[in-house]
Structures are given as C-alpha cells and as structure tokens.
Design a protein around this nucleic acid. Structure first.
Lengths: 368, 368
DNA sequence: GAATCGGCGTGCAACGTTGTCCATGAAAAG
DNA sequence: CTTTTCATGGACAACGTTGCACGCCGATTC
C-alpha cells in the first residue's frame, strides 16, 4: 500500500497541500475500478443500464476507498438529502420529543436532519427557514410555527413541507396535529366525572392567528370551552404563557377568585408545574384541596414526586409520522394529507374528587 | 414589472420549468447592477479591490433581488458556513441546554448549526460525524462522545473540533469541561458539613475510556472518592445508569445496605429523581430520613415540588464557550485550549442534617 | 514626457456531482 | 449476410460559487 516514487500525485501546481488530505471523489473510485466516472455515478444513483459485473466492480472500489458522496456537489444538481427541522426551543420539554421521532424515522433513510431552534418570534423563524433553504434542504418540518398562513403556503409552494401542531389543514403542505380539541374534552370530562364544577383553564395568547388555522393551545382552549358548556358549566380562562412562571401567575390569579376553583386544567404540563408551586405556597394540598392537571405528558410529569394527571399525545409518533409524510411528499405526492394523533388521558396523582364537594355545590347554588 | 412578450426567458431547451421558480444567483445580481459576476462575488466576500460606488451598486442590487448565496455551491469551493453538533440525546435534560448556548452564540455569526442526536453507541456517533463531514461542515462540536481518543484525534486532524464534557485535554482539539472533580468535592463537603458520614454515590460505567481521558461521570466519581477519603470516610459507589430508572435501582441497592446510608449523592439529577421515587416508596422522608442530591441543575430540579440540592455547571455557558473556541479554531488557531467551567453548589430542600446522627455515629463506631 | 505603480474590474478555471446524449458492439430479425 | 434493435458504458455540459491571473487606466515618480 506504500506509494513512494513513481506514482506522482497528479501534476498540480498546488505544492503545499494543507496536511488535511483530499477527499476521495467519484473520479478516484472510477480509476480504482477502471471505468469512467459516469459509470460510477450511475451505480450510485441506481440508474438503469449497468451490468452486474460493472456494479460489483464499482461497489468493491467504493468499499475499498471508503467513498462517500459530497453533499454540496449533490446539492448543486438536484437533491441534498437533507431535511430542515424548525422548532421553537430545544430546552422546552415537548418539542424535542417530536424531533426525536423524526430522527428515528430518518435514521434508516439516506436523509439527514438539520435542526434549528428559532424561538417564538415569527421573523426569526422566517430567517431560520431561509437559512435552511440556502442549504438546499429537500424538505421542511416546521413545529408549531407562529408565522402567517400565507407565508407558510408560499414556502410550501417552493419546497415540500410538513407542519406540526397547527390546525386547519392547508393547500400546499401536510399537517400532523394532535386532536387537541378532543384531548381537552377528555380532561374536562375526567374532572367533571370526579365532581368538579369550577374548573379554570390556563392558556396562551393566540399569536394573531385566526381559526381554523390555530396552534395547539388555541384548539385546547376551544375544546375546553365547548366541553364546559356541554356540561352546563361556565368556562373560566386565564391567559399567560406556557411556562412554569406563566402557570404560577395564572394559578395565583385563579386562586384569588371567589368561590375558589376546585380544579385548574393547565394547557401544558410545564404550566401545571407552576400551578403546583403556587398551590404549595398557599398551603393547598393536591389533590385534596386543589386538583391540578396538564397536557403533553412530558417526562417530568411521569416521575413519582410530580405524578401529574395529563393528556398524552405521543411526541415520538407525531415526529415519526411527519417524517413519513415529508418523504412521501418529496417523492412526488402533491395532494395534502392531514394526520391526526389521538390523545389519551393519563390519570395520575394530582387529580381527585373535590374535598369540599358539598360546600362547593352550596356555593354554586347560592351564586346561580 | 410585467415581463411579457419581448423578454425571452433565456433560450434554454428546458421548456417545462417546474413551477418552482429559479433561485437568484450571482449572475442575476451582476446583470441587475451592470457589472461582472466576479465583482459581485468580491463584494460579498468582502475582498479588497472594490470601489465604494461599486459596493453600493451591488449592495442595492442584492437587496432588490433578495439574493442569498447558495450554500452548496459555497461548500464546493471552501467554506459551507455550517457547524455540526453531535449530542447523545435531545430528550435528555442537560445536553440541549449546551446546544442552546451554542445556538445563541452562533446567532450573530454567519454560521448555522446542524444538530444530530446520535445516541450512546460509538458506531452510531461515528456515522453521524461522517454524515456531517459529507455535508462539509466547517467545524464540529461533540458533546460527551463515547468514542476512543485516537478516533477523536483523527477526526480533529481533518476538521476543526471542540469536544465538550470530556476530560484529559488533547493534541488536535479544544475541550470545554465542567470541573466535575471539584463539583463532586463541593457536594461531599456539603454533605459532610451537614453531619453525614455514610454517603453513597451513584455512577455509570466508564465506557471503556481510560484516565485521564474520561467523561464527566467518571471525573465526578474520582472527585467523590478523593473527597471521601480526605474526610476519612469510606466511599461506596453503585454503578447503574444516568436515568430515572438507573437512580431508582441504585437507591434500592443502597438502602438495602446496613447500616443504611444517610445520604445518596447521585451523579446526575435525572438519577436523583429515581432516588427520590425509591425513597418515597420505602416511606422515607426527604431530607429527614434520607438526604438526596444530584448534579447538573437541570430545569426539573428547580421546581418547587422537587427542589433538589445539586451542582450547577451552566450548560448555556458551556455551549457558548465551545462555539467561541470553535470559531477561533476555524479562523486558524492550532494550539489546543481547554476551557474549564467552575461548578457551583446549589443547596435546596432535599439535603439536611441526618436525623439519626447519634444513632448513626454509634453504628459507625461499632462497625469500625 | 516616459516609465512605473497600484487600485479596480473582468475572465476563467476549478470544485464533485447528475443526467442527457452519443458511440459501440452483440444479439435478434429480415 | 445485412439491417435493426437494444443494452451498455463513456463523454460532457451544466450547477453557483471562489479566488487567482490578467488587463486597463489614472496617478505618481524620475
């Protein structure tokens, strides 16, 4: 394997090769196999018009030299085999689960994902998408984008796109959503079934989006309100943010009301954690004095100390499905598909019948 | 702006343009500005030999056409302005914080990060790195890689690299590590200061790595053992994994010992959560009957219901610093740098003096 | 006033692929 | 035995950049 002496490394002017050795290219493989480089390209692309011997010779050479195609060069002509994924925050508990589902699904495909955490601001999200398009991604998966519907349609007209956690369907892209409406109903039914009547819901600003093109939290809000009305109960909503702090603030506000609610249904598990803190501070026992529930079934909710009653929507499944839809779309499908993930109620330790059931119903009666 | 009739869209054979309009290129900008495309390239690259008028004309044209450079084409000749980041798991609580730090740092640079979750298996991590190299990343940040030191040096010889959370320094790459050794000492001192003498530590397998080239958890283990010995105490280590389940199992094992330990110092917060669950199941009050502490100061540890005593190592800072080091290296620095993040003890509600202090010391005396 | 210099703009050859078009030769059909 | 067909492999022109080499021209120097 020594190549000393009479094998001049190509007569280039480039005297000082920068120690970092050159990458093996199609050309290298071609000369190793003793064929033309177009033939090698054909083998790699699985194009027709290749004899079996040809194929095996080339495959052997590729193996021997450890050849790997240059993504940049590929991107110049056609596909880059790269998928762009945009999410809001990596350190938030739910969205990374979706990404993990995407990663796992793409693991067996030739595609590689690029992940960008773009925050909540629409402008920054748009810049992130543009940066991905510069990198010639073959497709986009946008998780809970806060941009306008028109902008999304424009982007999707240019490049195969799947949007996650956004309701309302679309013309040019596929969607994967949890049935948030149904999930909220499940939770309200659970709480009402336990005997609760004053149930407060915490939500987030709608971000200027209009129905039916809304993000998950708005659909949950709608589901909550409808379910409450169906039970003949008065909805009560407090709008803060989906964060521990937002939940804490919402809880303080809710608990100051008279009569005090017996249950707080936070729109997200993170917010429910804040509600728990507020309850603790006010000396309320959960679930004896106050039932607290969330949505998302994030990891923290499962651990013993928290054991939060919540709704599961399988981030993994959501991610895997969006990756599947995107690959279909890259392979030519044009008609939009909308995949709906069925939510599942997970009753745990933070929900129970209201201890003050009799007292409460008296208050209800006198106030009606 | 209508271009009907006598503006033939270039005399190409390509009749059916696939609706998705062509991207604007250097050439387009050049004709808009009435200059050569090399001139435009110079302006973009900030090369010398450009007159002010030239620059403004070109900048205007770029602005007008909304030109954005094609990353693939750039990657063919030189830089791709892309950084590859490899981590173990996106859904783990600590590593995404590091990535967030990297993202924030790169936000103001022309570089864009590609994130890959590669799992714990060295082979899969290696494949991930190769996929990134195929994409011509200009640099790599590897978070807690389980690969051999030789392999890392080989990669780093080819491409600027920063390794996070791996001790021992290196020839060809920079490292950013928390001073895990010191952090473990802080925790042991804290516990001993409270009066504990039987302190169990939970760790993870070393993954076949040999000192001094070890991952964080091994350094924590070393720090724990040294500190215990300095206090004249007997170290007791249980090896499982850094997960809720791993912590649970370790705790069961530890609590079965006689005399029972009064404190369990888990090597990671996630594991400490499992310890808490085990304690709860056995009817032990924390911290009255058992002190539980962790390491990493993940988000969950901060919330009221958990309020875990732990050691903070600022993932954000770690990430930001590794990005800075990588950019320096991309700009030509060759001499390796090792950045050490100072750990900080965060005492919270899960640690306190052992209730059975007298009893405990009797047991100690009789067993010695 | 001629020679030299340096600033500025242009031309052009890569870079590593893809996919179309073309030449070759063997097998099948007449 | 000649013509057509078809499978196979090779040549080659893009793709959108970068960065070097060159040529022009006005200004400085002797």
């Amino acid at each position: 394997m020594k190549d000393k002496g009479n094998a001049p490394q190509e007569t280039s002017h480039d005297g000082a090769i920068s120690s970092k050795s050159r990458r093996t290219t199609l050309q290298d493989v071609a000369s190793e196999a003793g064929v033309s480089f177009s033939a090698v390209s054909k083998v790699i692309r699985g194009a027709s018009g290749v004899s079996p011997e040809m194929r095996s010779k080339v495959t052997a050479a590729i193996e021997k030299l450890g050849y790997r195609p240059h993504a940049g060069a590929r991107a110049m002509r056609g596909k880059s085999f790269t998928i762009g994924v945009v999410l809001v925050e990596l350190t938030s508990p739910f969205q990374p689960e979706v990404v993990q589902g995407i990663s796992d699904e793409l693991e067996t495909s030739p595609y590689q994902e690029i992940i960008v955490a773009a925050g909540i601001a629409p402008e920054r999200q748009q810049r992130a998408v543009e940066a991905l398009i510069d990198r010639q991604v073959d497709g986009l998966i946008l998780i809970a984008p806060w941009t306008t519907a028109e902008w999304l349609e424009d982007i999707a007209a240019k490049i195969p796109t799947v949007v996650v956690a956004r309701h309302g369907g679309a013309r040019n892209f596929d969607t994967v959503v949890d049935d948030d409406y149904e999930g909220a109903r499940l939770m309200v039914d659970h709480l009402v079934g336990l005997g609760h009547r004053r149930i407060v819901h915490t939500s987030m600003p709608s971000g200027g989006l209009t129905r039916p093109f809304v993000l998950s939290h708005t659909a949950r809000l709608d589901g909550y309100e409808q379910a409450m009305k169906r039970h003949g109960l008065e909805p009560e909503v407090i709008v803060t943010s989906y964060s521990e702090k937002g939940g804490y603030q919402a809880a303080l506000q809710a608990l100051a009301g008279t009569p005090r609610p017996t249950a707080i249904f936070a729109g997200a598990d993170v917010a429910a954690l804040g509600v728990l803190r507020a309850a603790e501070e006010q000396g309320l026992m959960v679930p004896e004095d106050l039932t607290v529930t969330g949505y998302d079934n994030i990891y923290v909710s499962t651990i013993g100390r928290i054991s939060l009653t919540t709704v599961d929507q399988s981030g993994q499944l959501t991610g895997a499905n969006s990756a599947k839809l995107l690959l279909e779309r890259i392979n030519g499908r044009e008609t939009p598909k909308n995949y709906v993930v069925a939510p599942r109620l997970i009753p745990r330790a933070t929900s129970g019948p209201p201890a003050t059931a009799t007292l409460q119903s008296q208050a209800e009666l006198s106030s009606t």
